[in-house]
């Protein structure tokens, strides 16, 4: 099971990165299509999406929340 968990973490890291880029490009192309400003927003949102993807990967890898965590869960919460 630990191997499966490791594999799923690896897949998640790859997916977070790709999804960040994809969302950025999608919003950029959409805005360009809407406002006829190609390729201005594509370029801006490509880099923002890349930043968001890398940020998500960093957060998953450091365990600061599952995807977008702002902080680790408080340790004093009653468990069990």
């Amino acid at each position: 099971m630990s191997r499966g968990a490791g594999l799923s973490l690896a897949l998640r890291l790859a997916m977070e990165l790709v999804v960040g880029f994809a969302i950025g490009i999608g919003i950029g192309v959409g805005l360009d299509y809407w406002l006829n400003t190609s390729p201005l927003f594509l370029i801006i949102f490509f880099f923002l999406g890349a930043g968001a993807g890398m940020l998500n990967v960093y957060r998953v890898a450091t365990g600061a929340g599952q995807s977008i965590g702002y902080k680790k869960p408080p340790p004093d919460r009653n468990k069990g």
Binding site: R12, M15, V19, I23, A52, L55
Partner: peptide
């Protein structure tokens, strides 16, 4: 710089959530 990145990061949530289940 941070606010747009955080907004995009927030919007990746439903996509990565659905993509993970679907892809697997």
């Amino acid at each position: 710089l941070i606010v747009p990145i955080e907004i995009l990061s927030y919007f990746t949530r439903p996509v990565s959530l659905s993509l993970r289940l679907f892809a697997n």
